[in-house]
Simulated scan of single mutants.
Amino acid sequence: MARVTLQTIADRLGVSRATVSYAFSRPDQLSDGLRQRIMEVAAELGYAGPNPTARSLRLGRAGALGLLFGETLAYAFADPYAIGFFQGMATAAEDAGVGLLILPLPHGDRRSETVRDAVVDAFCVMSLPDGHPALAEVLARKLPVVVVDEPYVPGHPFVGTDEPAAAAAAAGHVIGLGHRRLGVAMVGLHDDGYTGWASPERQEGAVFEAMRRRCGGYRQACEDAGIDWSGVPFYEVARNSREAGKRAGHALLGRDPRPTAILTNTDVLALGVLDAAAELGLEVPGELSVVGFSDSAAEEAGLTTIRQAKQEMGEAAGRLLLSGAAAEPERLVFPHELIVRASTAPPAHA
């Protein structure tokens, strides 16, 4: 049976989720008749009200969760993966009647004041590089903390994906189709603004743990198939944008011999690679196979990709924080799925 939420009740009554939330948290904002109807429907559906721990948190302290995100706000509201995650976390917060404060930390920004001055009851840390001073500031606040994707912090709950296995599935798919000349386009290895060819040392020294592990998954799949990883051209970009993906695509497809399959660690980059292939007059998948990652807006483009449970991960992170982040730290690894679409096929043989 589906879980009953504030949105379930709102849909039944044809009102907003905020209106239903007020019935439990701010009844003085509603007429007696409307509040009574909301409570009747809630009882009918078996909804007892917001999580008591979360309600106590809201009434006794700041009433907000802090989401520390290693990017700009403009990026956050344009990136499909981030949007899906934010939606899930917002759902958990709204169901509990608490707010969500997004704290952006653009790449290269090493400040910690953002954390020190944040009036929140708990922190979700998402996609920070190893050793970032803001993480130390978060831990010093002694509030509940959940880490998403990276970096893993012993003693605190973690929410993420099995990065090596997911990447190996992507690479294994094109290898299984018969491709031996692979190329890789990746973002998120470092936060130094570099764009260009990534040496093995730069790959292995990536400061973003999840991407370091994802890169390791690609490498392991290639080595298991007898493909020399040192011979796989690897192009790194500083920003996750379609234009950056196109630039990487042109660089990879300009090599001789040209890769017959390109792996990317985001769907946004993959779409850029498809743009580059189109500009060069290459047929996909006839002359080139392309694989993305995260299944964000990939269906319309017919993109083969790895599906991640973005929204479910966000909701889980929020609920862990609202429960006090659990006395026994949990490591929630969400399943991934290879979604095969029209951008991959066996290589054409002369």
Rank of each mutant, 00 (worst) to 15 (best):
A134N: 09
I175T: 09
P164Y: 15
E204W: 01
L135V: 14
G188K: 08
W229L: 09
F158M: 13
H190T: 05
Q220D: 15
G216A: 05
V125A: 09
V184F: 06
C215Q: 10
G176T: 08
V146N: 14
M211R: 15
Q203F: 01
P144G: 10
V153H: 06
G193K: 08
E204V: 14
M126N: 05
G172D: 11
R213H: 11
D149S: 12
R212C: 02
G216H: 03
A185I: 01
A169E: 14
H179R: 11
L177S: 12
V138R: 04
S127N: 14
P164M: 13
V184Y: 02
V184I: 15
A166N: 09
A166T: 11
G217A: 06
L177W: 09
G183P: 02
S199E: 04
C222A: 15
M186W: 00
E223G: 04
R213G: 03
P164L: 13
R202P: 09
A171G: 01
P129C: 04
D121Y: 02
H173G: 10
V119H: 12
S199A: 09
A210G: 00
S230T: 14
P129E: 04
T161H: 11
V147G: 02
I227W: 05
A185Q: 02
W197S: 14
Y194W: 12
L182F: 12
A122E: 07
S230P: 00
R181M: 06
M186F: 12
H132E: 01
L189H: 03
H190G: 02
G131Y: 00
G226A: 08
E150T: 13
G196W: 12
G205N: 10
G188W: 02
A169L: 14
L128A: 03
Q220A: 15
L143I: 09
R180S: 07
P157L: 10
T195Q: 08
V174A: 06
A210H: 14
S127C: 10
